[in-house]
Amino acid sequence: MNRVTAAPVKGRDFNSWIDKRLPVLFVAPVVGILLTLAIGPLLFIFITSFMSWELVSAAAPQFIWFRNYLNIVLDSRFWNAMKNTLILLVGGVGLQLVLGLITALLLNREFKLKRVVTSLFLIPITIAPVVVGFQWRVIYHESFGPLNYIIRMLRLGNGFAWLADTRTALFSILVAEVWQWTPFVTIVLLAGLQSISPRVYEAANVDGATPWQVFRRVTLPLLKPTIIIVALFRVMDVFKIFDLVFLLTGGGPGTASESVSLYTYINGFRYFSMGYATALAVIQLLIVTIICMNLVKMMKVRRA
């Protein structure tokens, strides 16, 4: 008799137990994995960044306090990589915003084939950065590439050895980056434009505003939060740029187009200086955290 009554009690026990524990049980696997893969490594790079640790030498890792960081501050190659990354960041994101906004404004109207055209514009985003890098190598080829051919055909000059010339290498990476990611800016801004109520425009038209005035005084201010979000997303991505640089120039010629990510990779996996590489990683982590905090702030504002 006891057992028969015990069963439902047990069931109720399970119900109340699962009701109480479910929220924590459900996040546990993700938190567990992320703790192992993110917090562990974070501690690792933080501690290693205070050590001299050369994988290729037999010497045991040594604690050297801030010497890695000091060396980074004095390392002209680091500052060069920083400068290159900033040029890509400001130039690349700037161009993407301008071109993206223009394209979004052009597409923000009804016309035949609009869906198809928008889809076609999106193709570059989907292509693997490695493939993009290879394709632009073909396009930039000094003797057989279509770009130099077009330049010669239009009699604009003899063209360049785009990727092998210190003056053009970084710029060439920038163009490929802008080519790939402008469509992302376009569709996000297009979504922003479409969320602006038509009534606002009607009101502006009734007041007799010129198209430019409408753009300056109505569209742009209303689009500003979207522009900031998309810009922050791009800034964060371009700051981490690696694949395109690796494929297009490998950072060369010399170090003319080396990005911070690539320089870190080279320190870690070509020179095997784990201490120095992790110190570089910590610095990048700090910078990205600052950008990320701003982005999060914007995302919270949007949600509220």
Partner: peptide, 16 residues
């Protein structure tokens, strides 16, 4: 969780 997604991959790839 979001901040992990944003972290630079090159910082993760060495410890991993």
């Amino acid at each position: 969780i979001l901040s992990i997604r944003m972290a630079p991959p090159v910082a993760g790839v060495i410890p991993i």
